[in-house]
Structure formats: C-alpha cells, structure tokens
Design a protein around this nucleic acid. Structure first.
Lengths: 228, 228
DNA sequence: ATGGTAACATACAGACATGTATGTATGTGA
DNA sequence: TCACATACATACATGTCTGTATGTTACCAT
C-alpha cells in the first residue's frame, strides 16, 4: 500500500457491530456508576464516541439499551464462571468454585451492574428490574439444585429451604464479591469463607499463610484460582 | 368538654415537629424504594400529607432532606442494635450479637436506606454518599476493634487486616440482612452463620431443630433473639 | 383585637433528559 | 455513476423535577 492510501472501507455490518459494542460498554460502565435513573444517554453516546442519534438508531430507547446490557453482562458471566461450576462433579465443590469464580469476575469494573440494578428496582415493577430478577432466579435455581444435592449426600448440613438458601448464598457472594473485589490475594478465599459459613460448612482447612504474602496453591479438588 | 368544641390548638413547635417527622418517614420510605435520583419531593410531601412548600420550609433542599434521613436511620440503628453489642464483654459474642440485632432491625421497611444510598453513590462524590460512607466507616472501625481483640485472644482465626475484615463482615451482614429479612425463624440464625463464616469461625453448635418450626432458646451466653 | 412571625400551599422559572423529526455521510448493488 | 438503504449527527418538542417567589393560614405576644 502507498502512504497516501484512503482508509479501508468497512462494511455497514462492521460499523454497526463496532458502534453497538462501544455503546454497550459505555452503557454498562454508566449503569455501574450511575444506575439507571441517572444514566444520561447523551453521556453514554459521548463516551462511546458517538451521538444519541446513533444510539437511538441501534436501540429503541433507554430501556432497550439497559436490557441489552443486562443480557451482555449475564452472558459474559456465564461464559467465564459457569464452566468452572460444571467442571465440578461434587455439589459443594461446584458451589465453592462458583464463589471463587464470581469473585474473580468481580475484578472487572462492570461486575456490579446487575447488583446495582437489582437494588435500584427492588420494590418497583420495571422491565429492567424484572430482567435482572429473572437472571438471578435462573442462577438461584441452579444453586438450589446443588444445595439440595449436597444436603442429600450429607455434605451440606440442614438449613432453610434450598431455594431460600440459594438466595442467601448469592446475596452473600454478591456482597463480598463487590466489597473485596481486586483485593488479592485474599478476595477469593474470603468469598469462600463467606459462602461456607452461609451453607453451614466448617472453615476450609488452610494454613495461616493464606492471609500473608502470595496466594498458595489450592488443594487439588477445587478449581484453579487464577484465570487469564 | 362539649361535643362542639373546636380542635385543640397545637403550638408551632408541635406542628413543626409533626411535619418534620412525617416528612422524614416518607422520605425514608421513598429513598428505600426509589433511591435518591428517583426520589421526587412532590411525592414525598404528598405521602407525608403536606406539600413541597412545607418541605422546603423545613429542609434547605433535597440533599438536606436526604442527609437528615441518613442521620435519622443511623440513630435508630444505634438505639436498637448498639446496646446489644456493648452488653457483650467477649468480642466474638459482641460481633454475633451485632449480626443478630441487625437482622432484626432489617425487618422494618426502611432498613435498606443506607445500603441503597451506598450502592447508588459508589464511584461518585456526593454529600449524601459521603455521609453514608462515614456512617459505615464509624461502624467498621468499631467492628475492627472487636475483630482485633478476638484475634489477640485467639477466638478469631487469622485473616485479612482487621479493617478489611470489618468491611467484609458488614457487607455480608448487610446483604443477608436485606435478603432474608423477616423470614423468621431462620433469618437471624442465617445471618449468624454468614458472619461466622466470614470471620473464619466454625458453625455454631445448634441442633437441626433450628431450621424446623419455632426458634429454640439460644445458649445463655448470647443476646436474646426477640426484641419488642 | 392587632401586628408579627412561622407554618404551610400554590404559582413561576429554568434546567435537564427523553424521544421524535430531519439532515448528512457512507456503504452497496446495478 | 447513481439510486437506495443504512449509519450516524443535529434540531425540535415535550415532560418532569428542582428550587424560588408569592400567597394564605395559624400561632403568639401585646
């Protein structure tokens, strides 16, 4: 190519995909920081490098954009954390793996979008709030199955009904996830502690060195701690 | 008094106090349900039985009202929960009593005001967010002292720095408090489980009957379970 | 009873955000 | 090259909310 060549032509499909992606990311960051009510579309578009016209071309309205973000976040969580869970045959190991994986997921800056929206729409009937609630319910259903299995095998002691237990487990995990996110080396182990407590399990057998310098290797039966 | 007597004259001070109280309660309910951004003062005033004129007569602006609510909630929490904590000489018992007392406090409908505001203003610099943060920091400082004392006595195993531990403890307690509030009989015991887990303590020695019908009596060394 | 102040209610003004309408730029197939 | 459709930008219209100004009611001291 010569030095004076014009920029390469991008297809409309490519342009559309890039615009959409940029807007979703900007909206997610905005929802994370400002919530839904305070999310100004002029700002979202600006931070994505476009204008509201482009935004309204791709999304019907503010609600449509937020719902798209909710789906986007759920998908990215499923892509990163679910494999860790399904890789475990034992229910307790699966629940612990989920907790550890979730805390690692919380190291990214949009991890609290769903929690923020859930808190914001609690007690209100709104499409975005409903979407978040449904997302969490799907996850809670899966956790309830694991909890019930763990109880049946005797690995998990008795407690509230499995579904209630699952909601408590998730709320604790969510809170710890956000509170200690990124505070390696102990964010992951602290999350495990918290969910073991809620489930009624005794503390994991670890040496005191865990709370010191570098995180040590995990026992062989749990998920890997670091993911790239 | 005769049947046709006019209503009793109330002093201006009494009228002012009643108006202020009604507005604070309505605002607290509004902040709990809608957060700050979505809190419409027209609605607050209406639900309190007044108009925005009365509201602006008593509070400089929306921010002033919200700050007053934050203080009001903090004071009511301190009045109800702190005595349970200070009544315990042992640090672990104090932390457990705090958790149990907090969950009982969460049975009222404005218990989540501070959490909602904290979530809403995370990442932003706003006077209301700062007030909430300071309130939580004061509590975390006290918890950190208890945690440090428990570690020194050997009752609490090692973990992250006491202050970090205190924030994790509070975030877990807050999450469980809101998630299971009012779901007697197990909301209080579930909260205890959660915080024991975070602190690294083994499960409390309880019989399986706890998760059945009525809550049994607690062992003598912990705070009473029911408060009127 | 009267004048003054506080407690409240109603009207006004401006800012901000959303959604819609219209204009401009870019890709695409014939 | 040209007509068309899509991708985006800019302008317009409307509603909502906050804070301020003004009006009315109630208490209070003289």
């Amino acid at each position: 190519m010569t030095t004076g060549a014009p920029p390469a032509r991008r297809t409309q499909a490519d342009r559309r995909a890039q615009t959409r992606s940029a807007l979703l990311e900007a909206a997610a960051r905005g929802l994370s920081k400002y919530g839904y009510a305070n999310l100004a579309l002029e700002r979202v578009a600006g931070e994505a490098g476009y204008t509201r016209g482009a935004l309204y071309h791709l999304f019907a309205n503010k609600e449509d954009l937020a719902l798209a973000v909710v789906n986007w976040v759920e998908e990215s969580w499923n892509a990163e954390v679910r494999p860790l869970v399904t890789a475990e045959a034992d229910p307790v190991d699966a629940l612990i793996a989920l907790a550890r994986g979730h805390v690692v997921y919380c190291r990214r800056d949009v991890a609290d979008v769903l929690m923020n929206l859930r808190v914001e729409f609690t007690g209100q009937d709104h499409p975005v709030g409903r979407a978040v609630t449904e997302s969490i319910h799907r996850l809670a259903d899966d956790c309830a199955v694991l909890i019930a299995a763990g109880r049946e095998s005797g690995a998990i002691p008795p407690g509230p009904p499995p579904r209630e237990m699952a909601f408590a487990y998730l709320s604790v995990l969510e809170a710890v996830g956000i509170q200690v996110a990124g505070k390696a080396p102990y964010d992951v182990d602290l999350a495990e502690r918290a969910v073991r407590g809620v489930l009624g399990l005794p503390p994991a057998p670890v040496s005191p060195a865990v709370w010191g310098a570098a995180a040590p290797m995990r026992p062989a039966r749990t998920a890997p701690e670091v993911h790239e």
